[in-house]
């Protein structure tokens, strides 16, 4: 675990050097700004960030895989994986370091949206407790998406393939499972509901912090990080 911090610092540095990260940040803010003015910032509307929070799963599915696609595929493509993995660094240090680097960048990205909360609170009574639970939910959602993105980045030396695969998987588990749950019944409905990322996220946006949902996000994020470590280790079996 000693090497988590240098890997994380390097990764975070790489984010701030990379034009893609700035492009993501810019489009993210532009999109949310437009959406905020169009839905929330209207006289007579409720003073909460519900609309914005409901939009987050869509936005994250599109944006976070773009942030993570580079993490490992770029190391494969340029061959730096060889210098990295022949240094005294464990696979888990690399994976956790890279994940945390992306997560910190994500936090910076998310922190900019707090501005909307302050704007709303200037014009009405904002429920700060509910806001806190919304942000907790967004952090958990983001962490899960980043871990899925990192996993696919470990699977391919091609960034585009990595990004698209993670987008597809995330779309299926965020929206399709939700949609299918609505169409089906019985045990299948129950299973699909439990697998739906959006279903687990929804509670947080309404100020409801459920142990179930926390366990879902923490374990699934952990699962994908674990799988990423295994993919990276698999090099040593071949």
């Amino acid at each position: 675990m000693r090497n988590v911090s240098p890997v994380m610092q390097r990764e975070l540095g790489a984010f701030f050097y990379s034009p893609i990260a700035y492009a993501v940040l810019t489009i993210f803010l532009l999109l949310l700004g437009i959406f905020f003015t169009a839905t929330t910032f209207i006289p007579g509307n409720r003073s909460s960030l519900e609309y914005l929070a409901d939009l987050m799963p869509v936005v994250f599915v599109l944006f976070l895989p773009v942030l993570t696609m580079r993490l490992l595929s770029d190391e494969y493509r340029t061959g730096t994986i060889e210098t990295l993995m022949t240094a005294p660094v464990g696979e888990s240090d690399v994976v956790i370091g890279k994940f945390l680097g992306a997560f910190v960048f994500f936090i910076v990205m998310l922190a900019t949206t707090l501005l909307y909360a302050f704007i709303v609170s200037a014009y009405g009574q904002l429920d700060w407790g509910m806001l806190a639970s919304t942000y907790l939910g967004m952090l958990m959602l983001g962490a899960l998406y980043l871990s899925v993105g990192l996993f696919f980045s470990a699977c391919s030396g091609n960034q585009i393939i990595a990004a698209i695969s993670s987008m597809v998987l995330l779309l299926v588990f965020t929206f399709l499972s939700d949609y299918l749950a609505g169409k089906s019944g019985g045990a299948l409905k129950l299973i699909l509901r439990h697998l739906s990322i959006r279903e687990h996220f929804h509670g947080f946006t309404r100020g409801l912090i459920d142990g179930n949902d926390i366990v879902f996000f923490v374990t699934s994020t952990g699962l994908f990080l674990f799988l990423t470590v295994k993919v990276l280790e698999s090099r040593r079996w071949r």
């Binding site: 540095g13 340029t78 730096t80 994986i81 060889e82 022949t86 005294p88 660094v89």
Partner: peptide
């Protein structure tokens, strides 16, 4: 890996880092 220095064939490096930063990073890994 702790007692070996290795220069791979194509000399892969991180292009966005400065030389000093890179050596700092590698030193930390060791």
């Amino acid at each position: 890996r702790r007692m070996m220095g290795y220069l791979p064939e194509a000399t892969p490096l991180y292009p966005e880092m400065r030389v000093r930063e890179y050596l700092q990073f590698r030193g930390k890994l060791h």
